Amino acid sequence: MVRMSAEERRESVIRAAVKEFARGGYHGTSTEAIAKRVGVSQPYLFRLFPGKKAIFLAAAEWCMETTIRTFGDASKGLEGEEALHAMANAYTQVIAEQPERLLMQLQMYIAVGAAEQEGDHEFGEAVRASWMRLWDTVHLPLGADVEETTTFMAYGMLINCLIAMGFPSDHRVWEGIYESSRRKDAPGK
């Protein structure tokens, strides 16, 4: 049996935490569930991370960084509409293959909102900083056009919500998204 390094074990904890937090949220997920998913004891978990909050923030950071990397890789060398479609297609593939990443994103926003109401700004500061890196990763290939970036991010959030709620792809709520995409692809647009 091959032993993992502390860094490899830490990475496995983060990936397990993404799955557990995506399913149960911050308050509904126990560190015991994360430890069990990884196959370690809770005390070992706390040798890698000082507490549940640190695990959640590491999972949130991992989730955002992988999304940033997805957009960056997809748009590399592209601009404008080509970059937009490449990023949209890459993200669509990721959330189809790894729905826990989408659900983790939504759980991050919930956790930030709840923490902010309780006066805890650490969640918000960390998630907002990651989100701004995501914004910049999208913004530059779209020609640093604020309207294009806003539209891309707004459609992304709408798509996240529709998928999270389980709307099938042929449901009428998708018509506006499909129609908008066709209009943008129309000749002369």
Rank of each mutant, 00 (worst) to 15 (best):
M1P: 14
R3V: 14
M4Q: 09
E11Y: 07
V13S: 14
A16E: 12
V18T: 02
V18A: 00
K19P: 12
K19I: 11
K19Q: 15
E20C: 10
E20F: 06
A22Y: 00
G24I: 06
S30M: 04
I34Y: 05
K36W: 10
K36C: 08
K36A: 06
K36V: 00
V38T: 01
V38C: 02
L45T: 03
F46C: 04
G51N: 14
K53F: 06
E61V: 03
W62M: 05
W62Q: 13
C63N: 09
C63K: 02
E65T: 10
T66A: 02
T66K: 09
T67F: 05
I68C: 11
I68W: 04
R69D: 11
D73M: 08
D73V: 08
A74T: 07
K76Q: 07
G77C: 02
E81D: 07
A83M: 12
L84Y: 15
A88W: 15
N89M: 09
N89A: 11
Y91N: 08
E97N: 08
L106K: 01
L106I: 12
Q107W: 00
Q107H: 04
M108I: 12
Y109Q: 13
A111Q: 00
V112Q: 10
Q117I: 14
G119A: 12
E122F: 12
F123I: 08
A126W: 08
R128M: 07
L134T: 14
L134V: 13
T137H: 05
G143E: 11
G143N: 09
A144W: 04
Y155A: 05
Y155E: 07
G156D: 01
L158M: 13
I159S: 09
N160L: 10
L162K: 14
I163A: 08
M165G: 11
F167E: 00
P168R: 11
R172Y: 05
E175S: 07
Y178R: 15
E179G: 06
R182G: 11
R183E: 06
K184C: 03
K184L: 09
K184P: 14
D185F: 04
P187A: 09
P187D: 05
K189P: 02
